[in-house]
Nucleic acid binder design. Structure first.
Length: 389
DNA sequence: GCCACCGGTGGC
DNA sequence: GCCACCGGTGGC
């Protein structure tokens, strides 16, 4: 990973730059996920701005979620040096790394985002400048959910701050572990912001949040990392694609490596460590269909679900009735671990070349203890409700 | 015909 | 159970 790449500028579709507003041109009420780095918000039962009213899930939450004391050394260092109050407010949130990112399409913002009085007008919301990036990112034709906003949580006050652009978000995400986000960092686009201000956004159940992976390298200059959210009830939550400078979409490290070999002109200065196909996780536990066991029955059928118990119908619980989107309900599996070979700063991708059909070596996972905090991204899935039942 | 999207599977 | 990869295909 290259520690500090220049700001990512989309070149594929012209002259975007970081100061341009990111604007979905044609998605109404959609959200686009793209990354976030958040963290142990899970343990923050009384997370600022988030009303958690799901006692039923708390046990599960507490059992599954990483506890602050398990935080890795990096986190511990940060905790030790941070100014986080140790009062009762933080007893469940003493991990200094609750960050998240979220980007809100203007359409959705007014309806779905509960802005505090002074958390205003974020400069990226400029309806007069449709984003080519978004038109590129969103498959409006298929009515899929997409990332609506990028938000990062302040490591000190735990309030969510909207990030004005995907580029800025990716920039923050790239170094989120070494440089935890704090409200003051948002002064770059909101000069007066501080931890004293109300959160920019709260989890109100109107959107789906997803945890992003931290420290994902920004795409090389001229490349774009796309996150496509799949429909509800599918076998997978999302896909990551890298769009090459020439517009080709690559969908795996194998394809990236092959492409770079075949296009040495575009490979110059590009390292495999600048790519990561890791996808966020939806906080809604049942967003992704469980995989059915691959067990053959004597009669030739497949099973695991003689009574269809595994293939339970996936019903989308409407926000007003669903509290899964709230942090207290999160069903986290094991804590994320940082893939050593790819996502750690200074690491490099070491997979050998493969013949077609071959499977590349799996990326190594960090030994236990390398737990980190993820992020959250909002998704508005209204267009996708009831797609599968 | 292309390709965005989805499902399925091997491997861990 | 998760992840990475890739084949199939429906929609355009």
């Amino acid at each position: 990973m290259q520690p500090s790449l220049p700001k990512f500028t989309i070149k594929i579709k012209g002259e975007r730059n970081d100061s341009e507003p990111l604007m979905p041109s044609s998605l109404s009420g959609q959200a686009v996920i793209s990354g976030t780095t958040a963290s142990v918000l899970h343990n923050c039962k009384r997370e600022e701005g988030i009303d958690i009213n799901t006692p039923a899930s708390q046990d599960q939450q507490e059992n599954n979620l990483p506890r602050p004391e398990k935080a890795n050394s990096l986190e511990k260092e940060r905790d030790n040096s941070s100014n986080i109050d140790d009062d009762d407010d933080d007893q469940d949130c003493n991990n200094a790394q609750n960050q998240l990112v979220l980007y809100n399409p203007p359409d959705a913002v007014s309806d779905d985002v509960e802005f505090s009085p002074d958390a205003v007008p974020i400069n990226f919301m400029n309806p007069s400048q449709p984003s080519q990036l978004y038109s590129l990112q969103n498959s409006v034709s298929r009515n899929l959910p997409s990332v609506g906003a990028f938000t990062v949580q302040c490591a000190k006050c735990f309030k969510w701050r909207l990030i004005p652009s995907k580029e800025k978000y990716e920039e923050i995400r790239e170094h989120i572990l070494e440089q935890p986000f704090v409200c003051e960092a948002a002064r770059e686009w909101r000069p007066e912001i501080s931890c004293d201000d109300d959160p920019d956004i709260r989890q109100d159940g109107s959107r789906l949040w997803a945890i992003d992976r931290p420290n994902i390298a920004q795409a090389p200059l001229g490349w774009e990392r796309l996150l496509r959210i799949r429909g509800f009830g599918g076998t997978k939550f999302a896909d990551v694609y890298y769009v090459t400078p020439s517009g080709k979409r690559l969908r795996s490290m194998v394809e990236v490596q092959r492409y770079l070999l075949e296009h040495p002109d575009e490979a110059e200065g590009v390292a495999m460590s600048q790519f990561s196909f890791q996808i966020p996780r939806p906080l809604q536990e049942n967003y992704v269909k469980k995989r059915t066991p691959r067990i053959a029955f004597p009669d030739g059928g497949t099973s695991g679900t003689p009574g269809s118990s595994q293939a339970r119908p996936l019903t989308w619980v409407r926000p007003e009735a669903n509290t899964d989107l709230q942090l207290g309900m999160l069903d986290y599996g094991s804590p994320y671990q940082i893939p050593e070979a790819v996502d750690r700063p200074g690491a490099s991708y070491q997979a050998p070349l493969h013949e077609p059909g071959d499977r590349p070596a799996k990326r190594l996972k960090q030994p236990s203890g390398q737990m980190y905090n993820g992020g959250y991204t909002y998704m508005n899935l209204q267009q996708d409700e009831g797609r599968r039942t």
